[in-house]
Write a protein that binds this DNA or RNA. Structure first.
Lengths: 229, 229
DNA sequence: ATGTAAGGATCGTTCAACAATCCTTCAAGA
DNA sequence: TCTTGAAGGATTGTTGAACGATCCTTACAT
């Protein structure tokens, strides 16, 4: 029986229930990442708590969670606000992304085990572009980079990457025209994936670094105009 | 007057007050990292709340914070426990540390701006060892690696590193004899710092990678005996 | 050894209350 | 006109109590 038991252990996480606070946090997280609550929006305890029909205490627990994920900022006695990222935040996010993503592919000498997820993300992006679904293109792009970070094989890197991309989404919603921002990188995603699929780590790293540098420059340029702080 | 005002703005962070939940979290965090609450300890809401004289709601906010920092684990309807790291956690922590710390020194070609903090950490470690203060040796060692990660110049990397080392402290408290674990690395710290101070990034990276590999092996070996899960 | 049932302990969540702080408004003074 | 000061209301910070839900333990029966 020991074999069956150890096999079952993998499913333990599936039946993980969640508290109300976590579910509330989930709701708010998706709302924020979808742009329903734009950066700078104040989330009053009364209003949100009333709308979701949860008590203030439970809501405050959810706020703490999202604050720790850097999606909200908490100002004492003033409440919580949807985070407004500065230009320095954007450059720092890309600094860490370069560090993580480049390291994930640098040492590759053969097609890695997580290659399928990378390829499927590329494919999803191409399909989204061909059907002019720019929203899906953006999420496919995010999935692509998450898959690349996952090549590192580290749960902590995965979570870090998830957080970084969630932060970046805050920036995207401040900017207009997601098409102009995501579409040009479709080709490069494919090239990077090709290099990975043949096990050419150094080449993939170089292209990734250039990709991220370009994306950062474009984002910082557009962001600096709107947010001259 | 604008000059004086902008000068004052830098001090704004100094008067940053904090809520009781955060102060409670601070207290618990230091208690945990000092080993007062060993891994596996259950932190009952009644007991802790009574001892610190804060309400359950406030205490739960503090618990959420520490849970998100991975110092506590939260099991629904069972309470919070001081985290017990698995061997996989240890290897993952070192995987990320290699990724971060090596990248922080790899591209160096000249003495970096944060060099002074690296050197002072090395010096603190040597002094602690010469006065047989093994506790101080451990903290100096941590400061050394924090200073190295800080060379990346990224606030997010700094925070990530802080979290990783806080997790590692949980492992140290399960193990005995901190001297045997920290002392052998004193020399290597000095050599790595020397390479950094002359701007030899690649050499520093190589030594760091070897250092971290050795430390991981030793830790995993000793940890696996105690925690055969 | 396995299963069931009762009881107590603890957590999850809500509600109500009050103090502390912030924001707004408005009037007084330079 | 601009600044300062003083109410007043609105919101957050924190507490305490309450009740249902869940878990753990114990005892008992199969």
């Amino acid at each position: 029986m020991t074999a069956e038991v150890s096999g079952l252990a993998a499913d333990r996480a599936l039946l993980g229930r969640s508290s109300t606070a976590e579910r509330v946090a989930d709701v708010l997280r998706t709302r924020i990442s979808e742009g329903y609550f734009p950066p700078g929006t104040r989330l009053a305890e009364d209003a949100i708590g009333g709308a979701l029909a949860v008590s203030r205490n439970t809501l405050r627990e959810a706020f703490r969670l999202l604050t720790h994920e850097r999606l909200l900022t908490h100002e004492l006695n003033r409440g919580v606000f949807v985070r407004v990222l500065s230009v320095e935040d954007v450059t720092d996010i890309y600094r860490v992304r370069r560090l993580i993503e480049c390291a994930a592919v640098r040492d590759l000498t053969a097609p890695p085990s997580g290659l399928d997820r990378v390829m499927s993300a590329v494919k999803a992006g191409e399909e989204a572009a061909s059907s002019s679904d720019w929203l899906a293109l953006g999420t496919a792009n995010i999935r692509f980079h998450q898959a690349i970070a996952a090549l590192a094989g580290s749960p902590r890197v995965d979570e870090l990457m998830r957080g970084l991309l969630a932060e970046l989404r805050l920036v995207f919603h401040v900017m207009s025209d997601p098409r102009r921002f995501h579409e040009p990188y479709l080709l490069r995603n494919g090239e990077i994936a090709a290099a990975i699929s043949v096990g050419d780590g150094p080449r993939a790293e170089g292209m990734l670094a250039a990709y991220l540098k370009d994306a950062e420059d474009q984002l910082v340029g557009a962001y600096g105009e709107l947010n001259p702080a």
